[in-house]
Write a protein that binds this DNA or RNA. Structure first.
Length: 622
DNA sequence: GTAGGGTTAG
């Protein structure tokens, strides 16, 4: 192909062009071109049209050839290069040829090229038409070029396209993707009711969803679409509405839309099914998500990822990794969204070997390493205790977002590096590129708590609301109680709880109970345990801690009393549980659980597994 | 022309 591309630029090409009038025209056949699926065939036809002169004299022929090369996309590394060269050889491309190029570039990885070509066209006699504008506006939207978009809008008005529904729909999308939802609404409202179609509705709905997170507004608009007698919603409308329900965790409405879909005879395609899986997942309905997922016949990467993400969101990390494995066996290649979820699962399990393997998998499979993946990796390495590797990746990133800073700060805090965590937070503030959010402050406060830095903690608690206008959530109050409690400031901790503007939950009382136990304050421990019992009468955690507190002060009768009460109410102690990675295999261990064998037996099994693994050739991607 | 999945958390 490269050979041919270069031919187009050579003097030989000009020579053939100049003698082409000598040849007859009858070799070209449009029907033949429609069937052409290989570069070699296209080259043959193209050569014929050049030799016969048709390529340069008949705009229909050159446009048809261009369209064929674009739709076949012959070269994977540079999918549009060949077509672009071909296009430049057309002496006076008609509007069809221009629009083919605009369409291709507006969907490509370099939409800028679309605008460059548009500028080129504006220097010719050819005027844009109603097909041109949607492509150019899409390129503006993808590049967030609001001013350029406005300019194009003005040109379209000059050409009298204010009631063309294709152009208006593209304007709605462009304005909302450029952050101008209000203007998008103005365009939508200005469309005569009989002109509006389902794409107009879908465009304004997804506009509300994408950049400004106006999920409630999106659902109201979906209601408006249902009430529009001239338009019937389609699969795109349903997918957007489900996505809004997912974002709002609105299970009732999500179920209603699911029912509406079934009764309305909508096609349950892989797109809608993925939205359904996600909706049930975000509403905490793992079983329903699983049911929908199991029934999807041709599962693609998106629905696999939606289900893996569902497991991660429900803290089912082992299941998430297992499903990823099944996805490998189904020969579906993961993408950046999938690996971000799976890496997160590895982090939560402390599965460093698996996490490293997935890092390598990304490199082997050429998965796009976007910021979400790097953030998940940094988080995974620090959760697994490999702070050096986490830092190495953190420093490697030239662009950092609020997740990047937050995972690193939190990672340092949880590894006991409080001073370093606070230093990094200062760096974040100085860099002034990213604004910390409420989760960043959870990291900062937990660093203070683990380092016993009471004054600093109180300072940052103030900074959070006063400087950054962030309202502390129950989690932040929890950090503060933990901070005061660990520092043996039990009275202050109790006062702090009383002064909280929100009702304390069990986690707050558990922190106080734990601190009271550590510092042997039995009265306060009893008080906190009572509070927990009121909130969670069937759970045993508080009583176990209280019994431990009595034991720590040798109050054996009280220990017996608490244990007896637990027995009488048939409340059993929940066994502690932890995950251990043995040569990349995640094993779950419970306290007093010998299902994996006794210690020497476990070691024996581990040795045997190691021996087997040494002699087995495992496909590294399965 | 419009559509689905992702990273941080006491």
């Amino acid at each position: 192909m490269r050979f041919f591309t270069s031919i187009l630029r050579t003097p030989l090409f000009s020579f053939v062009k100049s003698i082409s009038f000598l040849r007859p025209y009858h070799n070209y056949s449009p029907a033949l071109l429609d069937k052409c699926k290989h570069l070699k065939q296209l080259n043959q036809i193209l050569s014929q049209t050049i030799v016969t002169g048709l390529f340069h004299s008949d705009p229909f022929v050159s446009s048809k050839l261009l369209l064929n090369s674009l739709s076949n996309c012959f070269h994977q590394d540079d999918p549009l290069g060949f077509s672009h060269t071909l296009f430049l050889q057309i002496p006076k491309p008609n509007i069809f040829a221009w629009n083919f190029m605009f369409r291709a570039y507006s969907n490509s990885s370099c939409p800028t090229e679309c605008l460059m070509l548009y500028n080129l066209m504006r220097h010719t006699q050819i005027l844009p038409d109603n097909y041109t504008f949607p492509f150019i506006l899409k390129a503006c939207a993808r590049l967030s070029l609001l001013e350029k978009g406005r300019e194009i809008h003005a040109v379209s008005l000059n050409l009298g396209l204010e009631v063309d529904v294709f152009v208006q729909n593209a304007l709605i999308s462009m304005y909302s993707l450029c952050g101008m939802v209000e203007t998008a609404h103005t365009v939508f409202n200005a469309l005569p009711v009989l002109v509006r179609d389902v794409v107009s509705w879908n465009s304004i709905i997804s506009g509300c969803m994408q950049t400004h997170a106006h999920y409630g507004k999106a659902l109201k608009l979906f209601g408006g679409l249902l009430g529009d007698n001239n338009v019937r919603p389609n699969e795109v409308s349903i997918a957007s509405a489900l996505s809004a329900c997912a974002k709002l965790s609105s299970l009732d409405l999500g179920k209603k839309i699911h029912a509406f879909m079934i009764t309305g005879g909508f096609k349950l395609d892989v797109f809608i099914s993925s939205s359904l899986v996600d909706m049930y997942a975000k509403c905490g309905q793992t079983d329903d998500a699983q049911n929908v997922f199991d029934r999807i016949p041709d599962k693609n990467v998106v629905c696999w990822t939606a289900m893996i993400a569902c497991y991660v969101q429900s803290d089912l990390y082992k299941e998430a990794i297992e499903l990823f494995r099944e996805m490998q066996l189904a020969r579906v290649t993961a993408d950046s969204a999938t690996v971000a979820c799976v890496i997160s699962a590895c982090g939560h399990l402390g599965a460093l070997d698996q996490g490293r393997w997935i890092h390598g998998y990304c490199e082997r499979k050429g998965i796009e390493m976007n910021l979400s993946v790097w953030n998940a990796l940094i988080d995974m390495y620090s959760k697994c205790g490999d702070l050096n590797k986490a830092f190495e990746n953190f420093h490697f990133l030239t662009q950092k977002d609020v997740f990047t800073w937050t995972v690193m700060i939190t990672g340092l805090a949880m590894n006991g590096e409080s001073d370093q965590a606070l230093q990094l937070f200062s760096q974040m503030e100085v860099s002034n590129s990213v604004r910390p959010n409420d989760v960043t402050f959870l990291g900062v406060l937990s660093a203070c708590s683990h380092g016993g830095l009471v004054e600093k903690g109180s300072h940052y608690f103030e900074v959070m609301s006063q400087k950054y206008n962030l309202t502390p959530r129950i989690e932040h109050y929890g950090c503060m109680v933990d901070l005061l409690g660990r520092a043996n400031l039990l009275v202050e901790a109790q006062k702090f709880i009383s002064a909280m503007p929100i009702e304390p939950d069990v986690v707050i009382w558990r922190s106080l109970l734990f601190a009271s136990w550590c510092h042997r304050n039995i009265d306060l421990a009893e008080f906190a345990a009572n509070q927990i019992e009121e909130l969670e009468p069937r759970r045993c955690g508080a009583r176990v801690l209280l019994a431990n507190a009595y034991a720590a002060t040798s109050r054996w009768n009280d220990v017996k009393r608490v244990r007896k009460a637990m027995d009488e109410q048939s409340i059993e102690k929940q066994p502690g549980c932890s995950f251990v990675e043995v040569n990349g295999v995640i094993r779950e261990f419970l306290v007093d659980d010998f299902s994996h064998g006794r210690r020497d037996e476990i070691l024996d099994i581990v040795t045997r597994i190691n021996n087997i693994l040494q002699h087995v050739q495992v496909d590294p991607d399965i």
